[in-house]
Amino acid sequence: MIRHFLQRLLVATIRFAAAGIALLALVEFSFVVPGGSGHHVWQVESYGLVPPELAPRPLAWGELLRERGSATGRVLFLVVPTVLLVGYGWGILGARLRRYRVASLLAAPFAAFACTPGFWFVGLVAIYSYFHWQRPGFAGDLVVERGPDLLAWWNAAVVALPVAAAGIAWQIRAVAAVLERETARPWTRGLFVAGANNEEIFYGHALRRAVPALATLADRPLPALLGGLVVLEPAFRYPGMGSLLVESIRLGSYPGVLLASLSFAALATLATFLRELAVPPPAA
């Protein structure tokens, strides 16, 4: 038990270190070679104070990270459980309906939604950007003395919606694919011959056999979600880690770029580590 934990921890550390080195190399290559910048990643002069464009008031890098991190954390807190719940539920239901042709008309919306990943992106960005949170008067009358910061959560929810939509679509497809592979096994025919009906075959046998494979999908949406955040946060002018990354790239500010990208890599590695703790990967 402890050995398994330490093993997974070591693997996660090595993965994060490899990702970190790759990111450093990427930053160095892209800014110096085609970008023609004089600053190198290993030079201390490249890392200065927080540029005024990144923060309204003078901040240290740690405070900036905390502020932006909590903003993105709110979004992720809303997005990740939604994607997992809706993705798994819709995927299982969709696989059940599509496999056994019960109400194939009902299954069509599942299929349609599941096969259009990210199409929300372009349409929603163009429309929602009108409602960006800095517009004066937008929920600005809401004054809460004590209690949760509703305005911050509302803003996070606005960003979370399209991110979650894209993530859900991909997750539905993955879950449905795993279940369809499981129900296409030859022994479902044997079960049918022995007198099991569709529900018994799907929920009693196929779903039960697919549980390890489905558990492996739990950390799958996270890298895609983080990538979506990188695009959608600047679109909504939401001050999170994604905007930090994009603005730092525009300004050519290495600390911002590295902080943001390393924290994304750390999040993804953490998710994979937790999933591998729960569902040990098959021995290669």
Binding site: A19, F29, P223, L226, G227, G228, V230, L245
Partner: peptide
């Protein structure tokens, strides 16, 4: 572990 868009954006 590195999201693809992050790498692409940096590059």
């Amino acid at each position: 572990a590195i999201p693809g868009l992050v790498a692409l954006a940096i590059l």
